[in-house]
Design a protein around this nucleic acid. Structure first.
Length: 593
RNA sequence: CGGGGCGUAGCGUAGUGGCUAGCGCGCCUGCUUUGGGAGCAGGAGAUCGUGGGUUCGAGUCCCGCCGCCCCGACCA
């Protein structure tokens, strides 16, 4: 931001708050509100005030510059979109209540774009028809709308937000991989320049469709995504995308036959294990039974986008809970809900507390789809329900006594679980999703008929990638990672100004010296916030400066008597005196370093 | 979606069915102050989220709705 006039606190449209707003919990929300950066307008909808908007614009400019530098071309779509393209790809339905829908005066359906794959696909279809035109990567920076069930944490998860979304178009898989890699590299550079620390994790494509997908997560407590990181190798994944390593299959020959036992009042795993260990006829010959010896069968109700529902049973070791997010990610776009009384009433074959594989499976008597955890491999032996009240079966062997319809990744992931890549223990942490890159493949091109002629004159369907950066969310993520108990600490690259000058003292020479310094810094191309308020005590100004979080604070005050000013580093708190005549050179060097 | 908590001035809050809804911060005026959230005096600012109900009387009790925050969603 060269040549920007000095911002003056005396006239700035800003009111800082001395106390935390009562409705803000996470640090970024609290501090962005207190520092006068944003204000809430409606649930999940925020306005930007001057200081916050400067940060926002800096973030946006860095994103734009990086995209341009990578050779991607900027376009711009409307946020208000017609229904038809989204109907064609099925997302008018798949997006469900998350889609903001509206009608015009004639009753025609419109939507506010949650993301723009359809529009980009159609635009390329309209303009290009030859392989010679590809590869192509185009992007926009635009306001998106998603009617989130639960907006939260200020601008971390809003219903209106700004996203940079890119789309790549290639004739073949190798081209898609190259475009994907180019975006991945551009994203790394972007987040580096934004001053964010991040990890790249394997992810689930979800409703977006496609195969390969990675997320850029900014690790922090307030994050909504849980991810794992290997303590030994470089494996990292969203918990939704972690694949549980399957143990080797065991020979079934020689295993004892399954035995059904009366086990009254053992509707919970804990009660079942206690009973099994306390009864001589059920005891394990060598050791105590544990919950991991049981096969727990959890029933859920899937709701498909068209509103129809179907039951699904997930079988998993009894010491594990079902992670609904993981399950939902694998069955998307269907949603998952717990099975309720009415559901059990409709399926009498399911005996609560005693459900077992006996009746399960699409080929079983119940006809209910039965998927199991990858640990339930052929040859493993289980204690599980006998499908009769008060009875369990011991020694039921997978692959011999029952055959599930398939496996599913739905069990909770715990710290210490083995890494799927190397077997070392996994760590668990939380992060904010700041970027997501997908190899979409041909889902949208197929649905919308995006084809080009190849060098042989044959029509081929284009393969696509889609890539998003949460621009407004990045502002909040940066705030989450860069603050202390006194306020924000912006990275230099996005700070609302380069230098914050505090006029500490009422002497005219002090004000004049501060003005002079501000003018020189401005002339040198730095952006300056000058606290020139009169009648405001130095303490108030110092506190506001710490709250606002410009990385370098220059105090013009009592040191001026010796011809000095003080330069304070916001992050470290270190301060030192500098001869006023040398200040400009030092500050320019500091900012450009 | 479910459960819990909350909603009083720009912000933070007190208010136990009964007087003109109180306090701090912020804001305005004046004077004094001015290096880590100054002092004194005076002042403006509230349909107590909203709609209904109970009551002689409701910020206070009841119900609906809206909004905010937190937790939860399976234990077979």
């Amino acid at each position: 931001m060269k040549g920007v006039p000095v911002l003056r606190m005396s006239t700035l449209f800003l009111r800082t708050l001395r106390e935390d707003p009562a409705d803000a919990e996470v640090p970024s929300h609290r501090l962005l509100v207190r520092a006068g950066c944003v204000r809430r307008v409606a649930p999940g909808v925020f306005s930007w005030l001057p200081l916050g908007y400067r940060v926002y614009r800096n973030v946006e400019a860095i994103v734009r510059d990086e995209m341009d530098a990578a050779g991607f071309q900027e376009v711009h779509f409307p946020a208000l979109l017609p229904r038809e393209p989204y109907e064609t790809t099925g997302r008018w339905t798949e997006y469900g209540d998350t889609l903001f829908r509206l009608g015009d005066r004639k009753g025609t359906d419109y939507l506010l774009g949650p993301t723009h794959e359809e529009m980009f696909t159609l635009m390329v279809k309209q303009e290009f028809s030859s392989y010679k035109d590809l590869p192509l990567s185009i992007y926009q920076i635009q306001t998106k709308y998603r009617d989130e069930a639960r907006p939260r944490a200020g601008i971390l998860r809003g219903r209106e937000f700004v996203m940079k979304d890119s789309y790549s178009f290639d004739v073949d898989d190798a081209g898609l991989q190259a475009s994907y890699d180019a975006h991945r590299a551009a994203y790394r550079s972007t987040f580096d320049h934004l001053g964010l620390s991040y990890v790249i994790v394997s992810a689930m494509a979800g409703a977006m469709g496609g195969s390969v997908s990675e997320e850029f997560l900014a690790p922090c407590e307030s994050g909504e995504d849980t991810f794992v990181r290997c303590t030994a190798c470089d494996y990292a994944a969203n918990t939704e995308a972690v694949t549980v390593p399957a143990p080797p299959q065991q020979p079934v020959a020689g295993l004892p036959a399954a035995v059904v036992a009366d086990t009254p009042d053992t509707e919970t795993i804990a009660a079942l294990v206690d009973t099994a260990n306390s009864r001589p006829d059920l005891r394990h010959p060598d050791r105590d039974w544990t919950a991991a010896d049981t096969l727990k069968n959890v029933v859920v109700r899937l709701t498909l986008p068209d509103g129809t529902t179907e039951p699904l049973v997930v079988g998993l070791p009894g010491d594990r809970d079902v992670d609904l997010k993981r399950l939902e990610a694998t069955v998307s776009p269907a949603t998952v809900a717990p099975f309720e009384e009415a559901d059990f009433a409709a399926h009498p074959a399911l005996v609560r507390g005693y459900i077992g594989p006996g009746v399960l499976g699409t080929a079983g008597t119940s006809g209910i789809r039965y998927l199991v955890d990858p640990r339930v491999v052929t040859g493993t032996s289980w204690i599980t329900g006998a499908d009769e009240a008060g009875r369990h079966v011991f020694g039921l062997v997978a692959g011999r006594d029952f055959t599930p319809d398939g496996t599913v990744e739905a069990a909770e992931i715990r710290a210490g679980d083995p890494c799927p890549a190397c077997g070392s223990p996994l760590d668990i942490a939380r992060g904010i999703e700041i970027g997501h890159i997908f190899q979409l493949g041909r889902k949208y091109a197929d649905a919308l008929g995006l084809q080009v002629l190849d060098e042989n004159g044959d029509l081929v369907t284009v393969t696509m990638g889609s890539y998003g950066i949460g621009v407004s969310r990045a502002v909040a993520a940066i705030a989450e990672q860069n603050h202390d108990d006194r306020g924000l600490i912006w990275p230099r690259s996005v700070a609302p100004a380069d230098i914050h000058i505090v006029v500490a003292g009422k002497a005219e020479e002090i004000a004049a010296a501060a003005e002079d310094l501000a003018g020189q810094l401005e002339a040198a191309g730095l952006t300056v916030l000058l606290d020139d308020r009169t009648g405001v005590s130095a303490g108030v100004k110092f506190n506001d400066a710490d709250l606002i979080g410009i990385p370098t604070i220059v105090i013009v005050g009592k040191a001026l008597a010796e011809g000095n000013v003080e330069v304070k580093d916001r992050r470290s708190g270190d301060r030192h005196t500098v001869p006023a005549v040398d200040a400009v050179a030092e500050l320019v060097a500091l900012v450009n370093s």
